[in-house]
């Protein structure tokens, strides 16, 4: 049983929390309510879920690059995720969003699918971006 997964550092820092996992890309500008941090897009599988204190695990952001400001706004209101894991190669919207909001961010570039599949909905993880690893604390 592998309890530590390797990852690539994009924005440094430590983040701990339950994983909020989706395979669908996210448009921060149109899919999230900037006042509450809750997904209000009816089509998205995370509809009704909140980002607050979660480790967001998703493939990439899509849409306008100013979506980065939505995450910044949530961070100021205490509603942001504690860390972000991109399941493939991180995109520039997510990278810049985490950079200005000081949210630790990593991606899984070059990692095998099996190690990624350990991270499921509700899994508790510690993302240590500076050490390039994710520790599985508690499986859901």
């Amino acid at each position: 049983m592998c309890l530590v997964i390797k990852c690539r550092k994009i924005v440094g820092g430590l983040g701990f929390g339950q994983c909020l996992v989706t395979r669908q890309p996210i448009n921060f500008l149109t899919m999230l309510d900037p006042e509450t941090g809750i997904f209000h897009d009816l089509e998205h599988e995370l509809h009704g879920r909140s980002l607050k204190s979660k480790v967001l695990v998703f493939p990439k952001a899509i849409g306008s690059s100013v979506g980065a400001y939505v995450l910044y706004s949530l961070k100021n209101k205490g509603l942001a995720p504690t860390a972000v894991i991109c399941t493939s190669l991180i995109d520039i919207i997510t990278a810049s969003a985490c950079a200005i909001s000081e949210i630790p961010a990593v991606d899984m570039k070059g990692q095998r699918f099996e190690s990624k599949s350990i991270i499921r909905q509700g899994t508790q993880v510690l993302v240590d971006a500076d050490s390039c690893h994710i520790e599985i604390i508690k499986k859901h």
């Binding site: 994009i10 995109d91 990278a95």
Partner: peptide, 12 residues
């Protein structure tokens, strides 16, 4: 913050 943006996008 500006350098964090450039480095994160540079890595990406």
């Amino acid at each position: 913050a500006a350098y964090r943006i450039l480095v994160s996008i540079g890595e990406a």
